[in-house]
């Protein structure tokens, strides 16, 4: 049962990380690429670390403080990743990078 939970969490996380990477390659311009990475990376990282947290709870239950450390990591990524995405978006928009419209060339 435990191994199923851990493997499901890890597989979902790796799937979303892959979707983020493929979106970074496939989407036509900078703004749409950030759509893929800003969302999928946040959830993918959180899912992989959650899976490792369950693994830790059952295997190394003598050091529960490490779980708190991993939870801090998830919380920090949930706050910092959208903020970094927003900062990049704003910088690109202010410097006049034109968004891709339907029918344009790929950039």
């Amino acid at each position: 049962m435990l191994e199923v939970i851990v493997v499901v969490f890890l597989a979902l996380g790796v799937f979303f990380l892959f979707v983020g990477a493929i979106g970074l390659l496939r989407f036509p311009d900078f703004y749409t690429r950030l759509h893929a990475t800003g969302k999928c990376d946040t959830l993918g990282v959180a899912l992989v670390i959650l899976g490792l947290l369950v693994y830790h709870l059952f295997y190394y239950s003598d050091t529960p403080l490490v779980c708190v450390k991993l939870l801090f990591l998830i919380l920090f990524i949930f706050i910092s990743n959208p903020t970094a995405t927003y900062a990049l978006m704003k910088a690109a928009y202010r410097t006049g990078l034109k968004p891709w419209k339907l029918g344009d060339e790929r950039r």
């Binding site: 990380l17 990477a21 950030l34 990475t37 992989v48 910088a91």
Partner: peptide, 23 residues
């Protein structure tokens, strides 16, 4: 193309590196 794509890609690589370090 362009410096913004490079910075975004480097940020994504950094995020994935965090998971790799925990693993």
């Amino acid at each position: 193309p362009g410096v913004f794509n490079v910075v975004a890609a480097v940020n994504v690589i950094g995020t994935k590196t965090i998971v790799l370090l925990v693993l």
